[in-house]
Design a protein around this nucleic acid. Sequence first.
DNA 1: TCTGGGGTCCTAGGACCC
DNA 2: TCTGGGGTCCTAGGACCC
Length: 402
Amino acid sequence: MDAFFASVELLRYPQLKGLPVVIGGARRAVDEALRAAQGERALRFIPVADFPRLKDYVGRGVITTASYAARQFGVGSAMGLMKAARLCPQAIVLPVDFDEIRRFSRLFKRTIAEIAPLVQDRGVDEVYIDFTDVPGGQREGGRVLARLIQKSIFQATGLTCSVGVAPNKLLAKMASEFDKPNGISVLHEADLQSRIWPLACRKINGIGPKADEKLAALGIHTIGELAAQDRQFLVARFGKSTGAWMHEVAWGRDSSPVVMESEPVSMSRETTFERDLHAVRDKAELGAIFTRLCEQVAADLQRKGYVAKTIGLKLRYDDFRSVTRDQTLAVATDDGRAIRKAAGQCLKRVPLAQRLRLLGVRAGALAKFESTGVNASSQAATPTALSQAATDLTTNTTASLF
DNA sequence: TCTGGGGTCCTAGGACCC
DNA sequence: TCTGGGGTCCTAGGACCC
């Protein structure tokens, strides 16, 4: 989907069309800022630089999506809002409306599935589609079907998307970047040398800043240069698995299928505080946040029907270094109290002298919850037990750990 | 000037067992 | 006294993606 989060907001507020719009920041914080500026959200829009004491409101926010007009100013996703304000003071900032995003996400995916049923999820705004067995899927190299999908999505949602059609997922993903927004690119195997090899290695899905830097240090900048390397040379420098993979993808080879279903590996909740907190001085506040995160993870597990065998803790210090600790349980659980206890054990193994900016709780080693067996989690899953657990957590357990 | 939240996968070392 | 290969599980950190 093209500039998905921003495009969804433009549907609601068409008067913003063509203007630089950035989506990001905490919803509560941005709403508060809008109120403080005495702007009715639907009527008046506040440029990012007009926010009173902007830093207090959105200082820790990052941009999830920038409209194409905003991108002209060098503003892009993952950039801090403070930096965006400097680059483009007239940009209009709106909070992420996750409910609305999920609604449009489901809508566009359903629209695709009605046309081509074999669809793999790749997050809220992206999918892989297998054209192989779709009637007419091969006409004009897939362009006809791509056009139909584009048109149907636009009719259902009013949103545009960009489509890449290729012999495999690796190449399709790269092709989808060729003609944005609202474009279709068809890439054939024979186009590898002319259209893929001139691209930077960084364009490969899976080669990030670190690998790119390492490749650059070896004098390898383009995918063609990567393809020219001896496989053994890459294996020696990047390891057996990554080295071999790099050689494969440089030659446009990817045999991974489009898969509809996959089991989750972990579920987590984390939060960055509005200000850095200290384990001793802000004990009560941290304890309450910690408990809430554990309860959220427990609720997520229960809602989706999973139990976790390992519980993990993550924290990030004020200097942005982060540490993690894991604890494996004797019995898998989805109970808030058990998660809180295990995460509390993890917390004891971590240095707490430095101020914290983030706290997170993770449930891993998941298994489908079997309702037939009798275990601790099935008992704890009753509403009464849960609310009791919540009470216990906030009153007792919390205070002692920080 | 700083840097969200939710994920997956890989590596590497150590414990432990056969 | 010195010293095998597996294999699995657990833990910590980090790269990467949307």
